[in-house]
Design a protein around this nucleic acid. Structure first.
Lengths: 260, 260
DNA sequence: CAGTGGTCTAGACCACACT
DNA sequence: GTGTGGTCTAGACCACTGC
């Protein structure tokens, strides 16, 4: 990765490479290598990865270069640094980040005041993917997917009703009991029970009239305005692993967003 | 800022400081100093700040330390780095970031396909702040605020109706003509015409039924579900400078959000 | 105490943009 | 070519954690 002589860019010179490779800094290459180890499961969620010095020795680069690679991974929430302890693979199974992807907050008071969310699993079955679902999940129409319908109550009030689609190939034999009994977020469950690590998600938010079915789950009149939140969650390499269509009641809660 | 002897932390030792000051790394102190110059208007939006070497000399620290300070400022979108050219004060008056704070996107096609937004200024007047508005803007109830109501059409269709409140002390003599004729985002106008630099914003999103007044502006039936977006925009030091209540039609557009 | 991440420096060289 | 940001290294020392 580096020669003994301190002239960097070793992987990018060579008098006449076949195709003009785009310049990629060393730390970026190191980042890719660490990412591959992460993806390959060399270190599991919650575990520590090797120290910066160890990784520097492993890849034959300076500690500063490894540091910069890890900096970026930390910025993307793939790892978490803890001074004096080490760098750890990010996980959804920690108390502090219980609802990492949930942007709904109470208008008054804070999350703690309203206590933990109550879950009710309405449905959980294996079905065939519609064209829309298949496109979102990057699979073929008609392939098997797990379908889950559930209701979350915040402060005792049904507030979120959502439908979830998961590629059945990754989530074999998922059961209602699993979903109902697991302590923590669903992404924590995916991680622990199925080895699926969710690293980021994209949401499309719209205002819609509560449709048939949803109105009953949320105990509101049909036609009540609700927030429709379509979320696609991804694992490494931008591979989609979950499609979720949530309906949020926003009379006592709001969807919060920070704009930089 | 640093002694000749390479022992850092100079501002944090001293055998018995009055109150145990929290540890603050050098680069963080440098960041604060740069921030103060930014805030004081030493460099204006769009202008280049001094080079890293110059700043290092000015603060008597190494280039690497200045670099880390600027890295954080760049991550917060307060400055923009351009290799080979310099580091520039962020601005809202550039083509590329025309709608930096707008999260509404067409369901099909991209922003370019739909062309620039059309503005219609419905109202622009000076009024007294209600309790709610005053609280959001960090001023006293009854103080003067500019009130603006306008409609944005995307692809020729009225899609966004919004009310805007601004502290009159900062936005003296704002006129309908100014708002209608300025090319670019309102935040660009704030910057150019009033010297107010918006650096970040927070939004609370809800689904509501279109209220009286809004339904007419958006040409929809009363009661149609619309996205209510409450935005508070801030300048340096978390000082609020704008309250905006937008109503977005989401039948052909959606509010997009990325979750890390 | 040793080990980890975090900070700081100094110097060298690369990539990019303007002139 | 000159100047700017960007990368890389090597080494020293600080701050936090846990043995």
């Amino acid at each position: 990765m580096a020669t003994t002589a301190p002239s960097y860019g070793d992987s990018n010179e060579s008098t006449a490479s076949p195709q003009m490779a785009a310049f990629s800094p060393l730390y970026s290459q190191i980042k890719t290598l660490i990412l591959q180890s992460l993806q390959a499961g060399e270190w599991k969620p919650g575990e520590a990865i090797p120290s910066e010095m160890d990784l520097a020795a492993r890849y034959r680069v300076s500690q500063g270069t490894v540091r910069k690679a890890i900096d970026e991974l930390a910025a993307e929430n793939l790892v978490v640094r803890r001074q004096g302890k080490g760098t750890f693979v990010a996980t959804h199974t920690e108390q502090h980040v219980q609802y990492r992807f949930l942007r709904l907050f109470p208008d008054q008071g804070d999350l703690d005041a309203e206590g933990p969310a109550q879950r009710r699993i309405v449905d959980c079955k294996k079905i065939r993917a519609s064209a829309d679902v298949a496109r979102s999940l990057g699979i073929k129409t008609g392939e098997s997917v797990m379908f889950v319908r559930r209701v979350l109550s915040l402060g005792g009030v049904p507030t979120i009703a959502e439908d979830i689609w998961l590629p059945a190939a990754l989530f074999k034999n998922m059961t209602t009991d699993q979903l109902a009994q697991y302590k923590g977020s669903t992404y924590g469950l995916y991680e622990v029970e199925f080895g699926v690590r969710t690293v980021r998600a994209e949401e499309k938010v719209r205002a819609v009239a509560a449709a048939k079915g949803m109105d009953e789950l949320l105990a509101v009149e049909p036609g009540t305005p609700v927030l429709a939140v379509e979320r696609i969650a991804y694992t490494y390499n931008d591979k989609p692993v979950e499609l979720r269509l949530g309906h949020y009641l926003t009379d006592t809660h709001h969807y919060r967003n920070e704009l930089g």
